[in-house]
């Protein structure tokens, strides 16, 4: 079987398991390339429909074009979109100047926590990949979080033969990662093959482009002339720089990602 087909079939299998097993299920859509590919895969899994509501955590620091793209696609594809925001923290003046990790935890992790509690979701689908960074490389497809949202990475359940953790305590929820086995290049090659609409912030203008999208104060552009999907694939084949090099919060200290993710960060 061709490589992209193998990736796609596995992701569809996982999405269908999640849909079957979780009555209160949502999918996180960050508007970036990965979660947009995930959304496309959901439409494949469910034969043109997306029966799972999408959640976007709006930190208020998102690049404005992301919000416009989100609303446009939601209309065109008839998506059920739920926008969450930690309004209390924002009213209190939370922002990156209070410390990037503090800000990420308050506006993203706690923003998500508030919305999950309010809606009672027990399953949450996310588009993270193993090749993004070290702690994600140690994730499971179905990964439990306790009532404090914490990830016990030192004692993860076994996962084998596509039999996933779908039984859990009332106080926990499960993170589901259907793109875990994809790489950055796989994602772009799939976008090209399927002609999936992707926000144009990824394409170079004036010698720069975004390689990874986040909040504008903490996300930098990389030098690039790649203005099409083809050119991005060619660029990635030639580069040795890591994908999240432009994400400032990762570089706050050596174990920044581990600390953020243990507390429930995506």
């Amino acid at each position: 079987m061709e490589h992209l087909d193998a990736l796609e079939n596995q992701s569809i299998y996982i999405l269908r398991e999640a849909y079957k097993k979780f009555k209160k299920l949502a999918m996180l859509w960050s508007i970036g390339k990965d979660s947009t590919v995930l959304l496309w895969l959901a439409r494949k899994a469910f034969f043109g429909h997306c029966p799972i509501p999408l959640v976007h955590i709006d930190t208020s620091y998102k690049i404005p074009a992301m919000i416009a793209f989100r609303d446009q696609l939601a209309r065109e594809w008839s998506l059920r979109l739920i926008v969450g925001q930690n309004t209390a923290a924002l009213a209190d003046g939370m922002g990156p100047e209070r410390g990037r990790l503090t800000c990420c935890t308050a506006l993203k992790t706690e923003g998500l926590q508030l919305l999950m509690a309010e809606r009672g979701f027990t399953g949450l689908i996310l588009g993270i990949r193993r090749d993004e960074e070290g702690t994600r490389a140690k994730e499971r497809y179905f990964s439990p979080r306790d009532k404090h949202f914490e990830w016990n990475y030192k004692d993860q359940p076994p996962e084998l033969w596509d039999q996933f953790k779908t039984d859990f305590d009332a106080d926990t929820h499960i993170r589901i990662h259907p793109l875990l086995h994809w790489t950055e290049i796989d994602v772009w090659e799939y976008i090209r093959r399927e002609a999936i609409p992707i926000i144009d912030l990824y394409f170079a203008k004036d010698g720069e482009r975004y390689r990874s999208l986040g909040c504008w104060p903490c996300t930098g552009r990389v030098k690039s002339n790649a203005a099409t999907v083809e050119e991005i694939i060619a660029e990635l084949r030639a580069t040795n720089t890591s994908e999240r090099a432009g994400r400032a919060q990762d570089h706050e200290d050596t174990y920044a990602m581990q600390k953020l993710r243990a507390k429930g960060y995506m």
Binding site: P158, W161, Q163, K165
Partner: peptide, 12 residues
């Protein structure tokens, strides 16, 4: 196959 004991896969 796997066997689930309580909430977790306990054997294969």
């Amino acid at each position: 196959f796997v066997l689930v004991d309580g909430y977790d896969v306990a054997g294969g």
